[in-house]
Each structure stands twice: as structure tokens, then as C-alpha cells.
């Protein structure tokens, strides 16, 4: 006998959409991924009722983790309100009765995200699941998966490092903007998904568990809490996050909330002038809430 599912009469789906066999497969892979930080554990990915680009890998993780008392937040490119994020949230609400969703980083227990890690530091009570289009950072230097597996096993990343070397030779700096290769616990190098460099340091010594799911490549990997995550760099050419200073060297601020220490999206108006705004919409809202009462007070 396998797990009795708790399908409900008014709900055509199994709770969490996936059948219990599929969940077990994903769950076993998750535990091995945590036990071997940064290693891409293969698993049998199930067909999901949405396009692959939609983040089915991340979704399968979320659905295997989720319980009825979960509070879920879905982010796409930093925003909770994009079509993608809304659709995913609705899918979760529909297939996981009892689960509540939120846009507030402070309230959620489980985050499914694409392209961003929230600005607000996550806590030990939270898990973040990142959707990954291309899980293997070695694919740019080695087409054969068998050979890549050997290179990963031996932590032989010299050919990847040569790419960085060549980058510095050509451009005087490392030009990778997203998917910055990051070494976990001194061994495996991961593709941290298309998050900006800004978010990469958040993986290091995080209080929360970070899980990565690649649906097409059928891989799961993890950065456990309190684990060393080092972006690849040279000792004399250190890793740097995005620079948001203007021509005068001043840190640009969010046009909406005034924040000067968040990752900013650039908007170009029809007139050609540029404005900047927090990419993390929930963070921006939080900053506004804190600032508003002050502004509201009469002098």
C-alpha cells in the first residue's frame, strides 16, 4: 500500500496535484540534494499541465514540499503580480486546498521564485525554491554530460575558471550578469538560476534552505542553511555585485520608496529619461509603509 491520498470530494486533483509516487521520488531527491550540497541530483520529472518554461521544475519541488498549513509566496522577476506569478499562485491555490498565499515575505513559509531572492533576509522558518532553466554551469565548456559529471565529482572547474580568466583579459572584469557560477561548500559549482549577481551573496550562510529545480533537465540541487557559497572569482579580482551609482558616484534611489540599498530595475520613459525602482515589489511596499507615517506627520 502506498500513501493514502487525501483527495477531497470537491477537488478533482490529489492534494498538491502530483500523485504520491511522484512526490516520493522528488522528496528522496531533495533529501540527497541537501545532504550533498550543490550536487545536481537527477530525478524523474513528471509532465505538468503547463509549458516547461513556466518553471515546472520549481513547481514540482513546491508541490512535494507543501502542506495544508503552508503560506506560499510566488515571485517572478521580483514581482508578485506578473502574469506568471499570478498563474502559478492560482494553480497552487486550486490544487492545494487549505494553503494560503501571500505577497509578504515576512509572512510566508515557502517561496517559489524566478530570477530573484527577496531583499529581506530569509529566516530559518522559510524555504525558498528557485526555478532553474539550465542547471549545469559546465555546459558552456563541456558538451558531454558524462564528462561533466566526472568534472563535478572531482571538483575540476579549471575550464570554467579559464572562461573567467578570458573575460578579465578581454574586458578587465568578469562580465557574467546572471547565473553567476557559485561554489558550494568548497566543492560543487552550481548555476544559481538567473538571479542577478546582487542576490548571489544571499546564498552564503543563509538562515533558510535554498532549493533549485530544473524541470527540463530533471535535476534538483540545494544550498543548505549556513553553508559557504562563494561566487567563482580570483583572489585579486574579487566578485562584485551590480553597481547602482550614477555619473556623480551617488547611489541611485528607488523612485517610489527612496530605498538606496535594494536591487533596482531601470525604466526608460518615452522622453528617454531613466527612472529606477526596487525590483522586489514587496520590499518596496515595506519601505513605503515605513516612510509614509513619517511623511504624514505635520512638521
Amino acid at each position: 500500500m502506498n500513501a493514502m491520498s487525501h483527495t477531497q470530494a470537491d477537488n478533482a486533483y490529489n492534494f498538491g496535484f502530483l500523485d504520491e509516487y511522484a512526490k516520493k521520488e522528488v522528496r528522496r531527491a531533495i533529501l540527497k540534494a541537501i545532504a550533498i550540497p550543490g550536487y545536481q541530483v537527477p530525478y524523474a520529472s513528471r509532465e505538468m499541465p503547463m509549458g516547461r518554461g513556466f518553471g515546472t521544475g520549481g513547481l514540482q519541488l513546491t508541490l512535494s514540499l507543501i502542506g495544508p498549513d503552508e503560506v506560499v509566496k510566488v515571485i517572478d522577476q521580483g514581482s508578485d503580480d506578473s502574469v506568471n506569478a499570478v498563474n502559478l499562485r492560482r494553480f497552487i491555490e486550486m490544487t492545494c486546498p487549505g494553503v494560503s498565499t501571500t505577497t509578504a515575505t515576512t509572512e510566508c513559509t515557502l517561496i517559489q521564485s524566478r530570477h530573484r531572492i527577496p531583499e529581506l533576509p530569509l529566516t530559518a522558518q522559510q524555504i525558498i525554491v528557485l526555478q532553474v532553466p539550465y542547471p549545469d554551469p559546465l555546459v558552456v565548456v563541456e558538451p558531454s554530460e558524462d564528462k561533466r559529471k566526472i568534472m563535478h565529482g572531482e571538483a575540476d572547474y579549471s575550464r570554467l575558471l579559464v572562461k573567467l580568466y578570458e573575460d578579465i583579459v578581454k574586458f578587465d572584469e568578469i562580465t557574467i550578469s546572471h547565473r553567476y557560477p557559485t561554489r558550494i561548500n568548497g566543492h560543487y559549482v552550481i548555476d544559481p538560476s538567473p538571479i542577478p549577481r546582487w542576490d548571489v551573496p544571499k546564498l552564503n550562510d543563509s538562515a533558510a534552505l535554498t532549493l533549485f529545480g530544473a524541470g527540463r533537465e530533471k535535476k534538483i540541487y540545494a544550498v543548505p542553511p549556513h553553508t559557504i557559497a562563494e561566487p567563482l572569482a580570483f583572489s585579486d579580482v574579487p566578485f562584485r555585485v551590480e553597481d547602482f551609482r550614477d555619473e556623480q558616484g551617488r547611489r541611485r534611489a528607488c523612485a517610489r520608496c527612496g530605498c538606496v540599498d535594494s536591487f533596482l530595475d531601470e525604466f526608460v520613459a518615452d522622453s528617454g529619461s531613466k527612472t529606477y525602482q526596487c525590483s522586489d515589489s514587496d520590499w518596496c511596499d515595506m519601505q513605503l509603509q515605513q516612510v509614509k507615517p513619517l511623511q504624514g506627520k505635520p512638521a
Binding site: 500500500m1 502506498n2 500513501a3 493514502m4 491520498s5 487525501h6 490529489n14 492534494f15 498538491g16 504520491e20 512526490k23 522528496r27 531533495i30 533529501l31 541537501i34 545532504a35 512535494s64 514540499l65 507543501i66 502542506g67 495544508p68 530559518a124 524555504i127 534552505l209 543548505p224 542553511p225 549556513h226
Partner: peptide, 20 residues
Amino acid sequence: IWQADVQQRVFRELVEAFSR
């Protein structure tokens, strides 16, 4: 222990255990 909701909770405890 054979029911899905209990297994989900046990699994989350395993996730916590292996993470920490």
C-alpha cells in the same frame, strides 16, 4: 503513517533534519 498528510509532515521534518 500511511496517510499522505502525515507523510508530508514527516518529510518536512526530514528536510529540516538534513538541512540542520
